[in-house]
Design a protein around this nucleic acid. Structure first.
Lengths: 151, 151
DNA sequence: CTTTTAATTGCAAATAATTTGCAATTGCAT
DNA sequence: ATGCAATTGCAAATTATTTGCAATTAAAAG
């Protein structure tokens, strides 16, 4: 399958990592299910969970199984190709790792996820951890909010 | 594990909240299991999960069941008596709601939880959400770290 | 203090999300 | 093309939590 033509006006990442090549070079076999899943991840801008990835995947390859989705997510996470997020009260959701760290604002009404970054917050986090005698290995900052009503 | 240090001059709840009375006044029946669980929560400074609360509870009342722990946690959460935290990759952990909001630093080696607050971070979060057109309903800030080795 | 009765409980079974054992299949180096 | 270890699909297992239901119990009423 060829990648679909880019939709005019749609946001596209500037430089896209070639995960298929990266993985192959790392000695990972590129199988049909993996190719399918990688394509789905590269085509989406949202943060689908495993079941949603599975649903999209079987449109292309009906024999692909949910366990393979889970196994592949694990593999991709370990290789740094994707990020796993456990938002409040729901299944894990995934997104391609596009390099730049960011935090999330989750719309509690729709489940929509908006990404943001704040160097100031990052700096404050480091400062706090240091003052408590710790080094931060990773962190999780999630804002759960509701769209502000115009008034 | 560590409660936030009381800030001198700042208003703090004088004694502990009397949850038993609060709940009774709210029309909640005070049963043996509930009394047991409330006592366990009030006696601990850590963030136990449901199973751990259950284990501690059956030392007092061996007939108490895990489902009752879960049901009681739900009830207490709804009444604002406890807070539920879903730290990365594990079961929900609970703590009595002692009023003051705080965030958590989790020791990735031991599971220990250190509480902290930062007005600056809170303010920045509000600012970010507002700029994205949202009002924050709640948030989650967790730092996962490792104790700094002296050098 | 007994009666009354609806809330609560314990237990087992159900769910939800994810993982795993295993035999069959497949990528890819030869 | 061939061989074989990696990978897959499927079903069953696990983990965390919830729920249906009959039995029990708190607390209101008498």
């Amino acid at each position: 399958m060829t990648a679909p033509a880019p939709i005019p006006g749609e946001r596209e990442p500037l430089g896209r990592r070639d995960y298929e090549k990266e993985l192959r070079d790392a000695g990972v076999r590129i199988t049909r299910p993996r190719r399918t899943i990688l394509r789905i991840l590269s085509e989406t801008d949202d943060h689908p969970d495993a079941l949603e990835i599975y649903r999209r995947a079987i449109r292309t390859d009906p024999s692909l199984s949910l366990s393979t989705v889970y196994r592949t997510m694990k593999l991709l996470e370990d290789r740094g190709a994707i990020q796993r997020h456990a938002f409040a009260g729901g299944p894990a959701r995934f997104e391609q790792d596009h390099g730049a760290h960011h935090d999330h604002l989750i719309d509690i009404d729709t489940g929509d996820v908006i990404e943001f970054t704040s160097d100031k917050i990052e700096a404050l986090q480091d400062e706090i951890a240091r003052s408590l005698g710790y080094d931060i290995v990773h962190h999780r900052l999630e804002l759960y909010g509701r769209k502000r009503r115009k008034r």
